[in-house]
Design a binder for these strands. Structure first.
Lengths: 229, 229
DNA sequence: TAAAAAAAATGATTTTAATCAGCTTTCAAT
DNA sequence: ATTGAAAGCTGATTAAAATCATTTTTTTTA
């Protein structure tokens, strides 16, 4: 259980900051950011922002994982990204001037900091390192999504699952992958039943181990081979 | 036939510049840009840049259309974007520091200007209007691609074709849509045969007219309805 | 303008994955 | 500890779209 008082979360001591976009900040900038941000505890399944609304600031994940998704015509979620500790989310719509095209929902308990739009835009304008980091991030994601689109269009569900498990492996690190079957299906872009059957296949082939809800990758090599290019 | 000598292409008189990211440049910046850019004629089907190579500058489309695509495992193209007059292409990889994740190929005869990396990055650093324009563009595209991914995952080929035709209608403007069936299939993310059959259905339903290679949208309303959200 | 090549079209068949329906296990709340 | 709800699982069936094999038309170029 996380500390719900979240008094202790300061940018200077924030473990997630080190390899975030704020990682290279000097002491002065860290202190400034610390004064501008507010921090809040989110319980599991809580909304951070919703598709169609307009951004008033950005969110910085101090602790916990978040799913970023759009809804299709029939309301079915397509998970675009799973964000983890250290990531800044919700800045895309701030630059585009549009409403959010995605929603963000916590997958577990989270501590999330918030920086108001004007403060963040001011940071971007005055801090070229942060700015370049943001531009690099936007550009990288754009490339990743081109690949994502191609995978959706051309790979089989089995190949996409292998690919998704590799990404999830990176995101969860030492921890075991912990998603509902439905969320995983909505990430792979398939029906829940199909996903369940394929997970069983992967288990039978010794690629993963299933511990009820949690998944463990056993054979990374096979996964890489299965996922293709 | 375009003028292959392309001597006349100067930024000050460039018709494509007005509603491009360079549109708000002052006379001085226009002149500077004009001195930094070089301009070249590309014939139909020529490569502008190729997936896997590293960018040395950006390209600005003065005349003609370009397909931007990645190749899947079996070499099949997935068209991510079709760029038209006024668009700057190839800047994503310059910011991300990665190799190109996409290739760009002319769909017709083109006049394309080129600005070297250092010159362009210098522009970005010194011109906040251009910079904000670029960030807005990156962010917008990122949102569009989230929707693209969701469409791929959840819409039927028929719905995706309707969606694609709407986008193509915008891109081609008054002109008729002019793509090979294969390119169109690679944009929609389907097999060429499937695309051909669906085009015939759309024709029979009075949605489009087919003039051999060129397509004309007749019933925009039906298209919008078919494409869904 | 004739020949060759590329693109478009059509029909038959197969494959993949979605859908539907019902059942079981797990988890959370009282 | 019990119960209800959510999540997970299984089997049968259907539907969508890919693939394969040819033929026809259009475009290019020799």
């Amino acid at each position: 259980m996380l500390d719900k008082s979240h008094k202790h979360v300061t940018c200077a001591t924030c473990g997630a900051r080190k390899d975030s976009l704020f990682g290279s900040f000097c002491d002065h900038d860290v202190e400034l950011t610390n004064e501008q941000k507010t921090c809040a505890y989110f319980k599991k399944g809580q909304a951070i922002f919703i598709e169609g609304s307009f951004p008033r600031g950005v969110f910085c994940l101090n602790q916990g994982k978040v799913k970023v998704f759009t809804r299709g015509d029939e309301g079915k979620e397509q998970i675009i990204h799973i964000a983890k500790e250290g990531e800044i989310i919700g800045f895309r719509a701030m630059f585009s001037g549009e409403a959010y095209k995605v929603s963000a929902l916590t997958l577990e308990e989270c501590n999330i900091c918030y920086i108001a739009k004007d403060d963040f835009l001011n940071m971007i304008d005055t801090n070229s390192t942060l700015r370049n980091g943001i531009m690099k991030e936007l550009s990288k994601e754009l490339g990743d999504r081109a690949v994502f689109i191609t995978n959706m269009a051309q790979k089989s569900v089995r190949e996409r699952l292998a690919f998704a498990l590799m990404i999830l492996g990176d995101i969860y690190g030492d921890e075991q992958i912990n998603l509902t079957r439905e969320d995983m299906a909505n990430f792979v872009g398939t029906a829940t039943e199909t996903l369940i059957r394929l997970l069983k296949d992967f288990k039978d082939e010794g690629i993963i181990e299933i511990h009820t809800r949690k998944l463990e990758i056993i054979d990374q090599e096979k996964l890489i081979h299965l996922a293709g290019k």
